[in-house]
């Protein structure tokens, strides 16, 4: 079964995954993923629980390094450079490839510091106030918080917190933003706001989003990758990857069809 499905596109590739296998200790969680992520597009990773979609996402900015025993085989090319080459610094990778997490996790600092901190540690030189304002505007949060920048980020509502986290990621000027089920802890209205924001951000950034919510994938993404756990060795694999419209309306793979039509299981 081919796990390689790169849709035809004229755009450039932001990331190129070549035969990627992810391990936790001796357990192989994901096997043989080949995937080219389109630049300045939203790509959604969907699939049932345990299919490895989050693992793949976290391997894209080497967050997997932080899990004891976590390791990746294969190549993930970012501007022609393999992210897992020994001379690559994971710290710098994460600055270029930002991340937004499942639960909003602002730092217990002021809203201003939440944004400025990442910039500071990464050596940003320039007008910090401007950077903070611009990042908050980009995250569509400026109007709501401009009068209380010195208040704790923890005082915001869930949706606002998540947008603060997105603003925080933007401030380090990444090229790619990874979102790991960013709306799973939010109510529908906050979810919609985030989706609108994504459509705005994709003009400047490549976005990869993991979601459980198929409607969200269908609504918000340009491309969709469907993962499924291979029951024989419990390793996740990429089943189908293509333009969202095509994948949802005319899946090539029987398993994809089962999943999107709800016959999964």
């Amino acid at each position: 079964m081919s796990t390689n499905g790169t849709p035809t596109s004229n755009g450039k590739y932001a990331l190129d995954l070549q035969d990627v296998h992810c391990y936790y200790g001796s357990f192989r969680a994901v096997k043989g993923v080949n995937l080219k992520l389109q630049e300045k597009k939203i790509t959604a990773f969907i699939g049932p629980s345990g299919c490895g979609k989050s693992t793949v996402l976290r391997s894209l900015n080497r967050m997997n390094d932080l899990i004891p025993g976590g390791r990746v085989e294969g190549r993930i090319l970012f501007r022609g450079k393999n992210l897992y080459d020994p001379d690559v610094d994971p710290v710098e990778v994460r600055r270029r490839i930002g991340m937004v997490f499942q639960k909003p996790n602002p730092f217990p600092k002021s809203i201003y510091d939440n944004i400025a901190w990442g910039a500071k540690i990464n050596g940003f030189k320039g007008n910090m106030k401007e950077l903070v304002e611009q990042s908050l505007r980009s995250a569509a949060l400026w109007e709501e918080v401009k009068d209380k920048l010195d208040q704790s980020g923890l005082g915001l509502s869930g949706g606002q917190q998540q947008r603060l986290c997105i603003a925080r990621a933007i401030a380090t000027q990444p090229e790619i933003i990874l979102m790991d089920e960013p709306c799973s802890a939010l109510d529908p209205i906050a979810t919609l706001k985030i989706e609108d924001l994504m459509r705005e951000l994709v003009k400047n950034y490549t976005i990869v989003i993991v979601t459980h919510n198929m409607q969200q994938a269908a609504r918000a993404s340009d491309y969709t990758a469907y993962y499924l756990m291979d029951k024989s060795d419990r390793a996740g694999e990429l089943v189908e990857y293509g333009e969202t419209d095509q994948l949802f309306t005319n899946p090539k793979d029987k398993r994809t069809e089962d999943y999107i039509t709800g016959r999964f299981g």
């Binding site: 990442g118 540690i121 380090t172």
Partner: peptide, 13 residues
């Protein structure tokens, strides 16, 4: 742990 993840995600050492 989510705070640590957030920091690492921003490129913190």
């Amino acid at each position: 742990d989510s705070l640590r993840q957030a920091a690492f995600g921003l490129g913190a050492t």
